[in-house]
Amino acid sequence: MSFWFFCVCVIMLAVIGVYCLLYTYSLMRALIGIEILIKAVTLLIIAVGYFSQHLALAQSLVITLIVMEVVIMVVAAGIVLGLHHYQKDLDIRKLRELKG
């Protein structure tokens, strides 16, 4: 398999993630979109490590990245729970009140 093959995988995952971010009205689904984007970038880092024969470096980067990802998701989930306390559903359109 060539590096380009993995690039295509990453691009497809990234398109799915961005589409999800742009076209969803649900807070949780926005977080899921972010998660898919992070999956894409994890795959890219590992593929880069594989093809440049720097897998030890790539793996240690991915391990750190995964820890950061968890912390972000925990905090984001806390914020979603707080918002749910006020608006009783997870519709993102109600957030747009703030814009203007």
Binding site: T42, I46, A58, I66, E69
Partner: peptide, 15 residues
């Protein structure tokens, strides 16, 4: 499959 077993374990258990 890409020879990154350690990161793979993290991905499986954490993510």
């Amino acid at each position: 499959k890409l020879n990154a077993p350690l990161a793979a374990v993290f991905e499986l258990s954490v993510c």
